[in-house]
Structure formats: C-alpha cells, structure tokens
Amino acid sequence: MVTVEFFGLYRLNYHMKSIEVEASTVKELFQKIYEVNPFYTVKELKHSIVIVNDVNFNDLKKYRTPLKDGDRVLIMSPASGG
C-alpha cells in the first residue's frame, strides 16, 4: 500500500487528509485517488506538487515514477508558496 497525504487547498476543499491505496506508478495513483474521491480529477492532480518519498516527482520519472509498498506520497495544491 502507498500512503498518500494531502496538503494545501486540496485538503481543505475535498476534505481528505490521507488515504492508503495500491498503485504501481504515479499515473495509476492519480486514477485510484479519483476513484476514491472524484473531486480529485486526474487533470487537477497533474498540476499538483507531488512528492514521492521526499523527492519531487519532476526529479524522478514524473507520471511514470514507480511506486512500491510502503512508499509515502505527498500531494499539495499547486499554489503552495506565500
């Protein structure tokens, strides 16, 4: 299982703090999240800040980043600065 935590406006808007899902890639993870909570559209998730085990997914293989059991993923709404 992959543990996913949400931060930023996504969390406030969609009322989801964290979930555990099975997924082998970030792309698949987005789809699973959408199935659990349809507020999180895949399109929106693609524009979010995604951190896989403390590394931004842009520095990995982005949507093709492999995931395995025990991985931790953080998803933050895009406007995360301030």
């Binding site: 406006l9 895009p78 406007a79 600065g81």
Partner: peptide, 19 residues
C-alpha cells in the same frame, strides 16, 4: 491570484509549513 486570492485567505502564511 492563486496566492493572494486563494492560498493566503484560506490558509494564511501558515500554508508554508508543509512546503
């Protein structure tokens, strides 16, 4: 603006902690 129109009103400066 995403920061001044959404983020700061909803979460305040504290939004930064996670980042």
């Amino acid at each position: 603006h995403p920061l001044t129109g959404e983020q700061l009103p909803r979460l305040g400066t504290a939004a930064l902690i996670a980042s």
